[in-house]
Design a protein around this nucleic acid. Sequence first.
DNA 1: CCAAAAGTGTTTCACGTACACCCATGC
DNA 2: GCATGGGTGTACGTGAAACACTTTTGG
Lengths: 229, 229
Amino acid sequence: MAYKYEFARPALTVDCVVFGLDDEGLKVLLIERALEPFRGRWAIPGGFVRVDESLDDAALRELQEETGLKKVFLEQLCTVGTLDRDPRERVVTVAYYALVRLSNHRVQAATDAREALWFAMDDLPTLAFDHDQILESAYERLQAKVRYQPIGFELLPNKFTLRQLQSMYEIILDRELDKRNFRKKILGMGVLTELDEVEADVAHRAARLYRFNKAEYRRLTKQGFNFEI
Amino acid sequence: MAYKYEFARPALTVDCVVFGLDDEGLKVLLIERALEPFRGRWAIPGGFVRVDESLDDAALRELQEETGLKKVFLEQLCTVGTLDRDPRERVVTVAYYALVRLSNHRVQAATDAREALWFAMDDLPTLAFDHDQILESAYERLQAKVRYQPIGFELLPNKFTLRQLQSMYEIILDRELDKRNFRKKILGMGVLTELDEVEADVAHRAARLYRFNKAEYRRLTKQGFNFEI
DNA sequence: CCAAAAGTGTTTCACGTACACCCATGC
DNA sequence: GCATGGGTGTACGTGAAACACTTTTGG
């Protein structure tokens, strides 16, 4: 008990909702708690902020320690400071959400998490603490933001087909999009680079591959362009 | 020094960017710091979060203590945890922004603030800490959000003319709007109640007064309606 | 009667939406 | 040659944007 303060201080944690996408749909990465409170319950990864690391760094570190994930897209969601959200003591948490390319990443459990597993968004267990609410907020943010910011590409491989891109939006927004209108719109934006490659190992005509052109996106944005699906 | 913890903890504060509107334009409420660090510099109101109050409560309390403001519209902006943002020690702050009806509120200084003053957005002093950045973020949020959420009404009197409403949007968005198109659009939404009153004491034809109909807005929103300017 | 702002409609254009068929490829 | 998904164009309707004059009121 080496640290003393004149006034009581809330503990400060970061928690991170990690979204991933595969053929089955949108997934969330959860860890099984190895310690009390809520031992054995599923939770979103997170942990205490150290006094010598920034909030973003804390979120990245916890993500790596508990799930092995590195270099993911990460964005602050909100900060929750309800009085009784942790039974032990007053804990304020800065919530983040992350988007990862499921195809690229292996996930492992570590430290105080017993196991890390991907759950389908439509088949989630009840979570520890107020993590259900945080997850719900994160999903709402994702649904809203994917429409006017090109963050959806963070869920896809670097090279993708227009079909994959459209499916990603259909899954996240939970509604069908018209194929021709979608292609017209997204290609018309001029932020996709058409590659001299097609997808491999398909039992039908192979689709062309594209890449998101971030530099061009930024250039257009400076000129008043607004991404919108 | 009564409170001891096993690990060092960052201090936790709330800071609040308060926007107000009058004939001259958009204003921000700043306080002059009476204590070190940054003694004598202007800052946005804020202070330490107590261990037994929620974040929102802390923001409301600080606002009242430092400026006398009560019952304002308040929304969380973001949380900043840069390592050296406070020269004394590690301080993480949860930033808020508030919207107040300038016509209704008297402002007073109190506690550790020497003075509270409204500054025009285009004539701001250099602020203490990283408050310039927080203020900038708050302004960007306001500009973005005012377009798709009816928060702009929080800056106007309860009864307002369409001209006042349009001016509010023109000031915040920093561009002119077409009078006829604006009136068509806003009246077409059906969220304004036309009153049997007109403005008083004007040296020309008096304009009709309207009120924002929050209940109707909520009803329409449930049916899929989207507010948008 | 003059100044000042309130109030009001129509036309045009861009963009979103709906919709169906042929083509390329692998097996 | 057949099954599977890739790739393409047009017509229609809705809503945004541009635009100017008459009315009301107070001084």
